[in-house]
Design a binder for these strands. Structure first.
Lengths: 362, 362
DNA sequence: CTGAAAGCGCTAACAC
DNA sequence: GTGTTAGCGCTTTCAG
C-alpha cells in the first residue's frame, strides 16, 4: 500500500520530518539543509531551492526545542500571575503576550491564585523549561528567597504591579500611594469627612478590622496613601471604617456591610480594587443605597464596566497596559543587552465620573 | 579570589549547573546522577543522598528542554485565543491554565485578535515549540487547512467555543442556538414582539445591516437561533432590527443607535456577547433609556458585572469554565490515550434578572 | 560552497 | 547498583 519512490518519505501519521529527512530527500548534507532552513551561512541558490522544496514536500517543521538546546535560548518568557480573572491582570496578560510576540517571544503563563507555594512551583517549572526571562506578579512578601537572583539561574526577572524591596529586583509598578491620596483628596474636596476603606487581600481569612501583616506592596501603599491623606487633612479615621477581606464574595460583602453598619458610618468608600468595587455595588444595591447619592465610591482599576454602568464609577486608573508593556521592554532589554533597566513607577490618574456625591451642595 | 576545593564548583554567575556537574561533584557517573534526579531505576540509598546533596549544593535545576528532546514530549499545551480581554476567554484561559497544571502541563498562550494570519502563525510557532497538544479558539472559517490534522505534526487539537465543521476536529462548544432560542422565547413570554439583534463579529468593517459571510460557528448559531425562534413564534423580523458590528466601541454604538432609531424600533435587544451588552448599556445610558423599562436586554456571557449593576442583566450563561475544563480533559485524553474524545456541546442556561420588562402588565 | 564531526543536557539500553 | 555508550534534532566549527 506504500507509495513508491520518494513518496515513501512523505509525511505519514508517524514521526514528523526532521532535518535529516529533508537533507536526505534533497540529497545534501544535514549541514547544508540546516544552513538553508536556518537561513545563515552561504548556500548556492540552486541548492537552496532544492532543500526548500524538499522541506515543503515533507511538511518539515523545525524542532525549536532542539534548536533551543543548542542555542541556550528558548525565545520564551514566563509570566506568573497572582490572579487571572482580576480585570487588571487579564489586561496585563494580553499586553505581555502581544508585546512579547512583537519581539519574537512566546509566553508561558502560570496562575498562582495568590498562593506562595504555587508561585514557588511556577517559577521553578519555568526555570526548568528554560524561559529566557520572567515577569512575575508576586504574592509573596516573606519566604521570597526563591526569587533571589542567586536562585534564578541567571535569568532576568521583572516584577509587575508589586515590588519586593529586599531583593532589589527591577519592577514596574503604579504609583499606588499617590492614587489613594488623590482619591481621598477627591472625596474631601466634595465635602466628605467620613471616608472608609475596604481592602481585598489574599492573606486573611474572612474579614477583619485588623490590618494583616505581610501585605503586598501595592495594597500596602494604597492603605498608606489613604491614612496619610486623611491625616494630612486633619481627618480622624474611625477603625470601624476600615475592613480587610480575603475573598471577593461573602466576606467582601460582610466587610462592606460592617462598615456601613458602623454607628458613625462613612459617606464615602475607597475600594482597593475592581472586585471590591463590585462588592460595594452589590451591597449597596441590596440595601437600596444609591451610589453617588447615599454612598460615594471610588475604586481602583478602570474595568470596562466602570464607565458604562449607571452611575458610572469614579476610579483611580491603574495604567496596567503601559506597565505591562514597560515590563516586557525592560525584560527584553535585560535579556538582550544584559542591562538592568532598573525600576519604573508609573503615575495613576483619577478618572472622574458619577459615583461621588458632592456634599457641599447638599 | 576563587574559593578553594569543591567550592569552585558552586554556582556562579556563569552557566547553570548541569547533570554533569552534579555527577562530578557527587563522584558518580552521569547515569547514576540522572537516575536519582529523574527518580527512576535503582540507586543505593547512600548514593542517592550524596547526589541529592550535590544537586542542592549546586542549585541544580533540570533542563527540561533537554529532557523533552529525548522524550519527544514537552508537557506543554498551546492555547490560542482569538481575543484576550473578552471576559469569556479570560475565564477560559484561567481554567485551561489551572486544569492543565493539575495534569502537570504548562500552557503557552497566544492571542490572535481574531486575525487569521496571526492564528496561522501562532499555530506554527506552537508546533515548532513542540507543544503536546493544542486548544484553539479559532477565528477562521475559510483557509483553515493549517488546522488540518495533516498539518499538525500528529499533535492533537481541541477547538474551544467554535467548531470548524469541515475538518472534523474535536471541539467543545456551548449550545449557542438553543441559548438564543431561549432568550428570544423569554422576550416573547414577556410580551415582546419587536425584538432586535446586535452582533459583534470581527469580519466586518464598521457596522452593517447585512449579515456578513464567514461567521464563526458560535455567532452563526446564535443568529440562527434568533431567527428561528422568531419564525417559530410567527413574529416577523424587521431588517432594521438587526445589525452587525466589527468593533465594540464606535461602530457598536452606532449599530445599537441605528436599531433604536428605526421607525418601528424594537422593545427588546439580544446582544451577541458581553461587549455588545456593554455597548447597549452605553447607548441606552446616553439616550436616557432605562434598561428593563424602556428597553429590554438579554446578553450572552455572564460577566462578573452583569449581576451586580442596576438593573442587573438577564443573560444566556455560556458555561465557559466547564467548556474549558472539558477541552483540557479531552486534549489530555487524546495525548495520553491517543483516543479521540469526540466533541461536546454543553447546554447554556438563561439567567433571569432585571433587564427584561414585562410588557404584559403594562 | 558543502560535508564530516562534535556536542548542547539529558535518558535509556546494555553491560558489568 | 552503577558505568558506558548512543543518540534525541539541531547548529557550528573546521576541512576540503
Amino acid at each position: 500500500m506504500k507509495q513508491s519512490g520518494n513518496d515513501a518519505l512523505l509525511p505519514t501519521l508517524e514521526a514528523p520530518a526532521t532535518i535529516n529527512d529533508v537533507a536526505q530527500l534533497a540529497a545534501v548534507s544535514r549541514a547544508t539543509a540546516s544552513r538553508v532552513l536556518g537561513d545563515y551561512g552561504t548556500v548556492k541558490a540552486e541548492t537552496r531551492t532544492i532543500v526548500l522544496a524538499a522541506a515543503a514536500r515533507l511538511g518539515y517543521v523545525p524542532n525549536v526545542i532542539a534548536r533551543s538546546m543548542r542555542a541556550g535560548k528558548t525565545l520564551t518568557l514566563g509570566l506568573v500571575i497572582a490572579e487571572i480573572g482580576l480585570s487588571v491582570f487579564d489586561t496585563a496578560m494580553r499586553v505581555v503576550i502581544d508585546s512579547a510576540r512583537a519581539y519574537g517571544y512566546q509566553v508561558l503563563v502560570s496562575n498562582t491564585n495568590e498562593e506562595l507555594q504555587a508561585e514557588r512551583t511556577a517559577i521553578r517549572v519555568m526555570l526548568e523549561k528554560q524561559v529566557d526571562g520572567l515577569i512575575v506578579v508576586s504574592s509573596s512578601v516573606t519566604d521570597l528567597d526563591f526569587l533571589n537572583p542567586r536562585n534564578l539561574q541567571g535569568r532576568p526577572i521583572v516584577l509587575l504591579d508589586r515590588t519586593l524591596a529586599p531583593l532589589g529586583l527591577s519592577s514596574v509598578t503604579g504609583a499606588n500611594r499617590q492614587g489613594a491620596v488623590d482619591a481621598v483628596a477627591h472625596f474631601i474636596a466634595n465635602g466628605h469627612t467620613k471616608i472608609g476603606l475596604v481592602v481585598f487581600t489574599a492573606n486573611v481569612e474572612g474579614e477583619t478590622a485588623h490590618q494583616p501583616l505581610g501585605l503586598i506592596s501595592s495594597i500596602h501603599d494604597r492603605i498608606e496613601g489613604y491614612y496619610s491623606a486623611m491625616a494630612a487633612a486633619g481627618l480622624p479615621v474611625n477603625p470601624d471604617w476600615v475592613r480587610f477581606t480575603g475573598d471577593a464574595d461573602v466576606s467582601a460583602y460582610s466587610a462592606v456591610g460592617s462598615i456601613l453598619d458602623a454607628e458613625d458610618a462613612p459617606t464615602a468608600l475607597l475600594a482597593s480594587n475592581g472586585n471590591m468595587s463590585l462588592a460595594v455595588l452589590k451591597v449597596a444595591k441590596a440595601r437600596g443605597l444609591l451610589i453617588g447619592r447615599a454612598l460615594s465610591l471610588v475604586g481602583f482599576d478602570d474595568a470596562p464596566w466602570a464607565s458604562i454602568i449607571t452611575p458610572s464609577i469614579t476610579v483611580v486608573n491603574v495604567p496596567i497596559e503601559e506597565m505591562a508593556r514597560v515590563a516586557v521592554e525592560n525584560l527584553i532589554g535585560q535579556i538582550s543587552a544584559a542591562t538592568d533597566a532598573g525600576s519604573a513607577e508609573l503615575p495613576m490618574n483619577l478618572v472622574l465620573r458619577e459615583s461621588v456625591a458632592d456634599l457641599r451642595t447638599a
